[in-house]
Design a protein around this nucleic acid. Structure first.
Lengths: 315, 315
DNA sequence: CCTTGACTTGAAATGGATTTCATAAATTAG
DNA sequence: CTAATTTATGAAATCCATTTCAAGTCAAGG
């Protein structure tokens, strides 16, 4: 491999001059600039990025910690992040965690080793106390709200959105509702439960099913809900794919949506458009974009992204 | 930032010894190893990855050129790649191209600048002739077959799979079929047309719609197909989301699937399971895994991944 | 004619590790 | 008891580019 020294030697100048040419520095004699460029061309030379990153202490690369990469919600986040990164000529490295604490720490160590300028945590397994020390080594942005001032946040006010969704169901005449969530231990699930109590009061037993991720999970969840002695008349699904599964199960039982069963989904995903599902759109793409912007700007601001309810025919 | 020299000084040893401790080299006196580790701990030291990559000339990072990152097919590929990378402790950097020749070249230049050990091209805009010279700088693996020996391939025999799918429709009594594709100029589309001619002969005008990516595109395509004077009785969709859209349009017109309209999709995606869509599963996740393995092994083998037809109720 | 500022250039320091080479001490084998 | 290994360590070279510092040329302004 040819390096900058070779170029300098062949062009009969110093490495400083070659570097100046490479970086478009103003004061280089025209003839020298040309001969340097000629040698670079001839030798098919490209500067070594590691040497540059080493000395500059910057990589223009962001790591994105993602528990699952085949999940539509995280996909939307990632899409937003990628779009904004592309716009700003940053690269994105995907860091799958499967909610493993060890993996997460491994990735944070890479921030410390200067591999990334910053990290976006879409969802996490570790405590903030464990994570925060790493904010010394690069900006850390979370897609979930936290008080900690060391962490930038691009987040959704999920509690409010859950209140709104439940209220919508209540206004339609339902005095209870069932719902599904992804992880039982997540913050989001806690907020969901709180919002439920706020609107409907006590949660009937069997009205909450966790670990729902895909269409099939929704199908199964609906089956379980509808086999309960006291059938729910409305369901709030944690995603439109899950809601889609519920819809398909209801249809398979000759039930009418929304008259026999109201279904509201989340995230305004493609499947919901076709099925006419009413959905709480948390605008995850925008959440991702904003998160990426914060990392790029090394900002620790707390940015709340507005959600909206997209009304179709399933409620 | 503390570096290896600081550690050496504080521990009263040479940098070589510190490096030996860091790399678990056998021959270091127990007491020195311990004092080095103690200083590392105290100083909260982590080696700089760029310095390591610079001298080792290796990064354990793979770049993945991806035209769209919100497309279910490319998502499946990416998932496979990520799974295999995780298993082998490689990192994945996502390189969105939108089929831009310039972007692609930019990414290949990064391979040359040593940022990646290799690149996976899931789909491309540039000619192979333009791409091949970069194989000198790292392994390049394609998810599409090419004769060129410089490029590793993890691919699907699409032509065969298209023949099989059309033959299936023909066996069910259809003597023509309509179909959709993603990009008009893609290799895959050419093979689709060839396969069509092979099985059905001449393509009726209006029986091929391109630029179909999502459920809504499928919905619209079905509408167009079914408004033709000579309605097709069967459609081969380039993806289950697209097929799902077609299914929903057919249903909205009170048509029965498969008796009024047969639909076959591709890639065995979640939406198709719920809708009972027959689908050609190209096992893109496996294609991704294999592609990643090839890059890691720096292999230029041509690996054909078998496809299978998943029979459900839509044909 | 002298001063000032705009150009132009190269030597050397810098970023931070790994690795080879040389050397020396401590064992082990014969 | 000597020769051959094994163990242990540091100096210095290496990977490759950027940037500061110092110094020099040249033209314009007073």
């Amino acid at each position: 491999m040819t390096n900058i020294n070779d170029i300098a030697r062949l062009a009969g100048v110093s490495v400083s001059t070659v570097s100046r040419v490479l970086n478009n520095y103003k004061y280089v004699a025209k003839n020298k600039r040309e001969s340097v460029l000629k040698v670079i061309e001839e030798m098919n030379y490209t500067p070594n990025k590691h040497a540059i990153d080493l000395i500059r202490g910057e990589t223009r690369t962001i790591g994105v910690i993602l528990p699952y990469n085949n999940n539509p919600s995280f996909d939307q986040l990632l899409n937003g992040i990628l779009a904004k990164a592309l716009e700003n000529e940053f690269l994105i490295t995907v860091l799958p965690s499967k909610y493993s604490k060890e993996k997460e720490m491994e990735y944070l160590e890479k921030l410390k080793s200067k591999l990334f300028d910053g990290i976006i945590i879409t969802s996490r397994a570790n405590d903030w106390e464990t994570i925060i020390p790493y904010s010394d080594y690069g900006s850390i942005v979370s897609c979930e709200y936290t008080e900690h001032t060391e962490i930038g946040c691009s987040y959704i006010d999920r509690y409010s959105s859950f209140l709104d969704a439940f209220q919508l169901l209540k206004n339609k005449g339902h005095h209870t509702a069932a719902f599904t969530t992804a992880r039982l231990e997540s913050n989001s699930t806690k907020q969901m439960l709180d919002a439920y109590h706020e609107i409907f009061g006590a949660l009937p037993s069997g009205y909450h099913i966790s670990d729902c991720l895909c269409l099939e999970d929704g199908y199964e969840a609906a089956k379980q809900f509808l086999q309960l002695p006291e059938r729910p008349t409305a369901i709030y699904a944690n995603g439109d794919e899950v809601a889609g599964g519920m819809y398909l199960y209801a249809k398979s039982q000759q039930m009418k949506v929304p008259s026999d069963l109201a279904i509201i989904g989340q995230e305004n995903q493609p499947v919901g458009i076709g099925l006419g599902l009413t959905t709480v759109d948390h605008q995850l793409m925008k959440v991702g974009e904003q998160a990426c912007s914060l990392v790029i700007k090394k900002s620790r601001k707390k940015m709340k992204i507005p959600y909206r309810i997209v009304v179709r025919e399933s409620v």
